[in-house]
């Protein structure tokens, strides 16, 4: 195990976060606060409680998930895309470091960043709405699993993308819509029956449902199913990453 290398990459990535503090931490916090003001306070006051939870509080888990998904994918995809783009990846590929160690370092750093963002948003939310967390350990588990899974997905995108456009494409056209339509702002029960069924094909529904359950004890789908699906995505992402390294896809000729 090359601990020094893991530490070097992790430290390098975290240093990048510190350098771009405004972009990586402050801007997601500001944009989420705007959601609270608009949806939670302004519009939310006219929306009735959902399962006994005020609308302002109801959207907190969804908003944290929304940031978690977009931050994880963009952090991890950029972290591995940029060395490829700049050519500095030669050093990584010629270093005495295993693929598993590369993934642990990059995905670990990206997940750490998005978890920090998630926790800051959570702290910010308490300023706007009274909040209680029913199952804090489960909340952390879902937070970490989701951050890791979507950082892995980001890593895959960063390797697949061969230009900046593609790098933005997946987060913009897939991750954000799925997160918005996955019940960030509403309960699935509020949809017409047909759309309730369609929504179940959206993987993000399970993540948000489980995460919301850890806050309020209410969920659209069962917690076991949420956890199971979250783990399933994690393993699919791991399998794709393993395939990438096995074949050297876009990394080695």
């Amino acid at each position: 195990m090359n601990f020094h290398a893991i530490r070097a990459i992790y430290g390098f990535e975290m240093a990048r976060t510190r350098r771009t503090l405004l972009q990586s931490i402050i801007s997601p916090v500001i944009s989420t606060s705007l959601y609270f003001v608009v949806f939670g306070a302004a519009i939310g006051s006219r929306i009735p409680e959902i399962d006994g939870v005020s609308y302002g509080a109801f959207i907190v888990p969804g908003l944290i998930m929304l940031s978690l998904l977009t931050q994880s994918t963009s952090n991890a995809s950029f972290a591995i895309f940029f060395p490829r783009f700049a050519g500095t990846i030669y050093e990584l590929l010629s270093a005495p470091i295993s693929y598993a160690e590369i993934v642990v370092s990059y995905v670990g750093a990206a997940a750490t960043k998005s978890i920090i963002v998630g926790l800051i948003i959570l702290a910010t939310a308490t300023l706007f709405v009274p909040l209680q967390i029913a199952h804090p350990l489960w909340m952390l588990l879902f937070l970490v699993l989701t951050a890791v899974t979507f950082s892995l997905i980001g890593f895959i995108i960063g390797i697949w993308a061969d230009n900046f456009e593609k790098l933005q494409l997946v987060p913009l056209l897939i991750v954000t819509p799925l997160a918005f339509l996955g019940g960030s702002f509403y309960s699935i029960d509020m949809l017409p029956p047909v759309w309730q069924t369609v929504t179940l094909f959206n993987p993000v529904v399970y993540l948000i449902s489980g995460f919301r359950w850890s806050f309020f004890g209410i969920a659209d789908v069962s917690v076991a199913l949420s956890l199971g699906m979250t783990l399933l995505f994690l393993f699919i992402a791991l399998a794709i990453v393993a395939w990438i390294f096995k074949t050297g896809y876009r990394l080695k000729t």
């Binding site: 430290g11 050519g87 500095t88 270093a95």
Partner: peptide
Amino acid sequence: TTDSFESVWATVSFSRGLFGK
């Protein structure tokens, strides 16, 4: 092929760590 935003010291120290030292 170098990093752009890092300092010389940081990038050289990074390489040392990457190679397990």
